[in-house]
């Protein structure tokens, strides 16, 4: 009986030692990675490291919870001999972390009770918990449980449910404007709104539907890329320079989303 217990103890301690060694190795490599490759790290690889560590911690927990593992707290370690001399065996066993089995290290390594301050705090928490009535406690437990289950549900459910919620939340804060996208792309590709040689007009409102139709980029009289629109002033809202962008498919609609610093139509940078 004795032997079996002893054997169990030994195997479980060995298993624990190997698992802890793995954990230590991965921590070490992670630290080295952070110290030397910090400028090349990507967030996904850091997340991988954390996932690895959490996996290893999980296996250690499972090991400890295993029914084959004897309760370690039933074992007592009593120092039999303390000396100030360096013990080579011990040093080798602990990879040079504990070279001397002396009076300094014993209180730390063989500690079984928490620090006095921690003990105080624990006592306080215990008295407070005892003071609280059972139904109050019950209610708090239920609230916590509910929050946890809600969260788990949200995390486990398929994405579509979530996205509709998110879309609703984000409606108020648009981060991009598709009309702007089109205007910028047009500017880069054909220089819409950029050409310096367009004759500009001012005064009077622009009938937005009057554009020269067709898709050819060539104008009579000069190689330019833009279509000509009836020269006119920018409308009340828009002030994208004196140029009115084309909207061949929507004759009635003015581009309303492009705003620039020029507010008044009288500030023409181009000669008439």
């Amino acid at each position: 009986m004795q032997q079996r217990e002893e054997k169990q103890l030994e195997t479980s301690i060995d298993a624990l030692i190997t698992r802890v060694a793995h954990l230590k190795a991965s921590l070490q490599s992670f630290i080295i990675k952070l110290e030397t490759e910090y400028d090349r790290l990507t967030w996904p690889s850091v997340l991988d490291n954390f996932a690895l560590l959490s996996g290893q911690l999980n296996t250690i927990n499972k090991l400890l919870r295993n029914e084959k593992t004897p309760a370690f707290r039933n074992q007592v370690i009593i120092p039999l001999l303390l000396s100030q001399d360096r013990d080579e065996e011990l040093a080798k066993l602990t990879e040079q972390r504990v070279p001397v089995f002396s009076h300094e290290i014993v209180p730390d390594y063989l500690r079984t009770k928490p620090d006095p301050e921690v003990e105080e705090q624990e006592k306080q928490l215990n008295t407070e918990a005892a003071r609280m009535g059972t139904d109050v406690a019950q209610k708090q437990i239920q609230a916590l449980n509910k929050l946890c289950t809600n969260l788990l549900e949200k995390l486990n459910n398929p994405r579509e449910d979530r996205e509709s919620e998110n879309a609703a939340i984000r409606q108020n804060k648009p981060t991009f404007n598709p009309a702007d996208t089109n205007a910028l792309v047009a500017a880069v590709v054909f220089g819409k709104g950029l050409s310096n040689r367009r004759p500009q007009g001012s005064g009077g409102s622009v009938p937005p539907g009057q554009t020269v139709g067709g898709a050819g980029p060539m104008l009579s009289g000069g190689p330019t890329l833009q279509q000509v629109t009836m020269p006119g002033a920018p409308n009340q809202q828009v002030a994208m320079g004196p140029q009115v962008p084309n909207q061949p498919g929507q004759p009635g609609k003015m581009p309303s989303s492009i705003k620039t610093n020029i507010k008044s139509a009288s500030m023409h940078p181009y000669p008439r």
Binding site: N177, T181, A183, L184, G193, L194, M240, G241, T260, P269
Partner: peptide
């Protein structure tokens, strides 16, 4: 002004 890169004006309130 053509050729003058000092005086420029923003094209829109968005970034490409």
């Amino acid at each position: 002004l053509p050729g003058n890169t000092e005086s420029t004006e923003n094209l829109s309130l968005s970034n490409l």
